[in-house]
Design a protein around this nucleic acid. Structure first.
Lengths: 157, 157
DNA sequence: CTACTTGCAAATCATTTGCAGATGA
DNA sequence: TCATCTGCAAATGATTTGCAAGTAG
């Protein structure tokens, strides 16, 4: 365990694998090899991904029958439940993104090349909160997608 | 045709069924009874809806075999293509909302009762445009969902 | 031990497609 | 007339589930 995780009573950020282990234990669930490999694989990449992309990274284990599709889907659901992943829906398929040790953000989605560009705006959140207040709505989170063309694709046009 | 549609060369708003007919003609597609009933049914209601809800309203015709599921899906796709409906994805299933004669808006989505509350904010669009400009991104549209609890559900808590 | 997990195969479920007969322009 | 449409049945394709065998604690 790295020194930065033992500086005192301050609640410091745990590595994803450990945070997930704590979540599992708190639910009486087991820390299996499959769940560990999956978390590690997910957090060693920094992109958005869908179940298929994740499975590509885990192909070898799947071929060896050490891991299967259903288990990957089951574990993704647990990570969402643990609040460590966000699940979004882009054109019918589920897309996930890290929600642990990663600042909240929104997306510019290029409809030509399908690229996702992240951005964050405090002003946006202020407006969101003001609107919610007007409706006596309690905000838990939000998601915003701006659809259009990215700089590269505009150039190619 | 009502008088308000013949006031001169000004481009006035056509009733949805007519607007759709024009779209179909411009594509060499036919104005069939099925397509007409579907548009009329959709625009005689003012809610968000999914394919199943629409089919409930058209049950009778479906039972009489005057209309079928595939045709409904095909027509919904055409209405989206015509720019008269917006398609969104809420929890895996496709949800549609009117996008004709209806101002653009965003949503507060209550995760308890599943209600959708609409709102519009010019400031939000300004921020959206500013962010896009910074990324040389060309905006076509956007979609924002704020998730949380509506006033009613907060009261019941 | 033994309750939780997993891989497998099969089931779901909304949506889509191939095709032969029906129908609008 | 005849290209476009439609209903039907079957296909899709991502995700989920039942179940018997495997395994963490």
């Amino acid at each position: 365990m790295s020194e930065s995780y033992s500086l005192g009573p301050v609640r410091v950020k745990l590595p994803p694998a450990e945070r997930f282990s704590q979540f599992l234990q708190s639910r009486g669930k087991r820390i299996t090899q499959q769940r560990q490999v999956i978390v590690e694989t997910i957090y060693s990449h920094h992109d958005h991904f869908d179940a298929d992309e994740l499975m590509e990274h885990l192909q070898e284990l799947i071929a060896q029958r050490k891991l299967s599709r259903p288990t990957i889907y089951r574990t993704l659901a647990e990570l969402v439940e643990a609040g460590m992943l966000r699940k979004m829906n882009l054109g019918g398929r589920s897309v996930f993104e890290h929600d642990y040790g990663y600042p909240s953000h929104d997306h510019l989605h290029c409809q030509m090349c399908n690229k996702l560009i992240e951005f964050h705006s405090d002003e946006l959140e202020q407006i969101r909160n003001a609107v919610a207040r007007e409706h006596s709505f309690e905000v838990h989170s939000h998601r915003m997608f701006v659809t259009g063309l990215c700089a590269d694709c505009r150039a190619k046009q």
